[in-house]
Write a protein that binds this DNA or RNA. Structure first.
Lengths: 95, 95
DNA sequence: AAAGTATTTAGATGTTCATCTAAATAGTAT
DNA sequence: ATACTATTTAGATGAACATCTAAATACTTT
């Protein structure tokens, strides 16, 4: 879970997710959207893959990446948890 | 927005938000929940404050921190955006 | 005003991380 | 087999960051 948050902390990786939300793409297609070198993008893809935010599938000499929304559920749940703060204890600051 | 994601990338800062979701706390109370030194926690509080994930209010010699759910909305919106991928373009990978 | 408590600021240190170049792997096509 | 294309791995470098100790600031109480 910590790894997921760390993966999302990088703007390039978030842009990759934004790209993949529209359609699956090969590593090269993804890299073409950035000014960084391919090895750098490959590293980012690997980071996202390790957290299972994306998945890959080899097809011929291409590797096709796609988004995996399963993990997003977990992150969302954490957010919901933080946002529904407990009003019963509000105002007990003068302890 | 990038700063918000970077702020959330640290597990200590996420635990601070978890603490503050229950009730507002002074800097010292927050620090008592961790093994780190107070300056370190102070630094984390400052990071969270810069992104407006939390806010502070001085009361006497204490500084009371509280959560600010406004910014969470923005982050949530990004998640929703990524999760509702566009099915129309799915399967167009063999370009 | 002096001592005590709460918190932050300053500066230093070690680690993590994004990025690069060069080289390796793997598949395709001639 | 050889050349070409797609992608990754390895290793190096510099920047960002979490953490610490020591010192500063600010408020409270005697």
């Amino acid at each position: 879970m910590n790894e997921v948050f760390k993966a999302l902390a990088d703007p390039t990786r978030r842009r990759i997710l934004d790209l993949l939300k529209n359609r699956d793409m090969t590593a090269g297609e993804i890299a073409d959207h950035f000014q960084m070198t391919k090895p750098t993008i490959s590293h980012h893809l690997n980071t996202l893959k390790k957290t299972e935010l994306i998945q890959d599938e080899k097809r011929g000499q291409y590797i096709i990446y796609s988004i995996n929304t399963t993990v997003f559920q977990d992150v969302m749940n954490w957010f919901f948890g933080v946002m529904q703060s407990n009003p019963i204890h509000k105002g007990e600051n003068e302890k």
